[in-house]
Design a protein around this nucleic acid. Structure first.
Length: 505
RNA sequence: GGUCUCAUGGCCGAGUGGCUAGGCAGAGCUCUGCAAAAGCUCCUACAGCGGUUCGAAUCCGCUUGAGACCUCCA
């Protein structure tokens, strides 16, 4: 029996507003799509929270036996800041600002995005398609929507006719909006617009002759509408209807709403069965966003070089910090919270190192001790909880709570010199669950330290000297060695048997 | 203005009607030459006011406060 059958997954579906049992269209295959970045500048920490959340979804579904195809796009083309056509193209704007070709901007920030993902241990998706690589597919989709009568062409642009669409379908089903209210609530009606209704959105947009990024289409030269790429690429790689589509809450409307309309308009089918939306990272209770000036970049975080940051934080501490809350809740950033997370992360990380070196204590068992069935049951309970909590809408917070319990057990086993009376199977199951949930599912890895071997060697020399000093009862010297290493960030720890370990901050 | 969320112990945070989540900080103890690490113990909260229920942090109503979306946004 596959793990996903033993621990069935449930997901909070934004479409229904309820938590639902997850049943893929075609198990064991799962199609997962999440909206990636627009590569016109660097991603900030808030963006990263969403990518981390879906990274864990991808990791967990894979871990329990699903064959997941994870598609996360790169938006590298025509992305106007609004649908009316009076906005600016972000990439074009950056290109002018930095005096680079649009594709240079795209390359630069795609590379930077990948670097950041690597640092945060965010796995590459199965497919990472770009908008510019799928212009043909997007044009085809526009044609279909036009043929089905849900769009109209005017001055070389094509707009989705929301009112027409809503006659037969339900525009607003995802975000809970009412089309009449949307029509009424539209602001700035005074501006002359070529759209029939203010809520219509561009699926193809004619551009002025001085616009650098442009493609030829049946309607003239232009760029695809910004909601269109996800529809086209999701359909291409995952099919007319796939399992999970995710993104930040702020994409729910209009982006995802429009995506549904486009798919239904073109193919007559709602594209996604389970919509997942991650909540925002906040700073002092307010959404982190560039326009508010309260956002910071990953590299500023690692360097501690931002007014909001009291010090530098490591990528894994930040990843752990994010996983301590549920993806659907807002998470408030603060230095206090992050410092606390740093320590918690270290605790789990230490236990991970410890358990990797631990092996089942056969000698004790072979002396005829019977197994401790109570302890075995407790370990088994923890193993089970890791799965049930993750299967319950990817509750990383509860899973971490169990991992802390497990780490306490690991330390206990160590301090008792492995004098635990459990079967080899029970121990290995426990050990492997801890390791795999830490590393494979939550993606928490040991921090890499540079020149590890050299450090090891140098510190070991000092450890030998200190051992000698201690055996000579020269505590003044032994303390001096320890204290001075400590001031450099190296903590020595004496074991019972005279052995010494160390950790580096 | 419309739509919708959220309010939990010193701090961060989980919680989907009944059984003290967890982390950080703090206090005490054990181990240790002294530390560190680790273990054990203590710290039992759910914005306010009503209601439903044998029982509510959890459901309903009102009040107060915070936020999100309605423009680009993860």
């Amino acid at each position: 029996m596959a793990l996903y059958e033993k621990y069935p997954v449930s997901i909070s579906n934004s479409l229904s507003g309820k938590k639902e049992l997850f049943t893929p269209v075609k198990a064991p295959f799962v199609g997962l799509y999440s909206c990636g970045p627009t590569v016109y500048n660097e991603v900030h920490l808030g963006n990263l929270r969403t990518f981390t959340s879906f990274d864990v979804v991808f990791r967990y579904l894979t871990h329990i036996g699903y064959k997941v195809r994870y598609v996360r796009n790169i938006t590298d083309a025509g992305h106007l800041t609004n649908d009316a056509g009076v906005g600016v193209d972000r990439i074009e704007e950056s290109a002018k600002l930095e005096q680079l070709e649009p594709m240079e901007i795209v390359q630069k920030y795609t590379t930077s995005f990948h670097d950041v993902c690597r640092m945060f241990n965010i796995l590459p998706p199965s497919i990472e398609p770009t908008a510019t690589g799928h212009i043909v597919e997007q044009i085809e989709m526009v044609k279909k929507i036009l043929n089905n009568g849900y769009a109209y062409e005017i001055n070389g642009s094509v707009y989705f006719d929301v009112r027409k669409y809503n006659e037969k379908h339900n525009y607003g089903e995802l975000s809970g909006r009412n089309i009449d209210e949307l029509l009424e609530g539209t602001r700035e009606l005074d501006r002359q617009d070529e759209k029939r209704n203010a809520i219509d959105f561009a699926i193809w947009k004619a551009v002025s002759p001085n616009h650098i990024q442009r493609w030829t289409s049946p309607w003239g030269e232009g760029i695809p509408g910004w909601h269109l790429e996800c529809s086209a690429m999701g359909t291409k790689y995952l099919g007319d209807q796939f399992d999970i589509h995710g993104g930040g809450m702020d994409l729910k409307f209009p982006h995802h709403e429009c995506e549904i309309a486009q798919n239904v308009g073109a193919l007559g089918k709602s594209p996604v069965r389970y919509w997942m939306h991650t909540n925002m990272l906040t700073v002092n209770g307010e959404k982190m966003s560039k326009s508010k000036g309260n956002s910071f970049l990953p590299r500023e975080l690692f360097a501690g070089s931002h007014p909001l940051l009291a010090k530098a934080y490591s990528p894994m501490a930040v990843r752990f910090f994010m996983l301590q809350s549920h993806y659907s809740s807002t998470l408030d950033f603060s230095n206090e919270a992050l410092s606390a997370a740093e320590k918690g992360f270290k605790k789990l990380s230490n236990a991970l190192t410890t358990v990797k070196e631990m092996n089942h204590p056969f000698p004790i068992l072979s002396k005829g001790r019977s197994t401790d069935s109570e302890l075995e049951a407790e370990l088994d309970r923890m193993v089970n909880e890791c799965y049930t909590f993750m299967s319950n809408d990817f509750n990383t917070a509860k899973t971490l709570a169990v991992l802390f319990e497990m780490s306490a057990k690991i330390n206990e086993f160590k301090s008792k010199n492995l004098a635990i009376f459990i079967s080899e199977e029970a121990f290995n199951n426990f050990k492997h669950t801890y390791i795999s949930f830490m590393e494979d599912v939550l993606g928490i890895k040991d921090e890499e330290s540079h020149n590890q071997e050299l450090m090891d060697g140098v510190i070991n020399v000092l450890i030998e000297l200190r051992k000698k000093a201690r055996s000579d009862k020269n505590f003044a010297l032994s303390d001096k060695i320890r204290d001075e290493l400590k001031s450099l960030g190296v903590q020595l720890m004496d074991g019972k048997d005279g052995e010494m370990n160390y950790t580096i901050e």
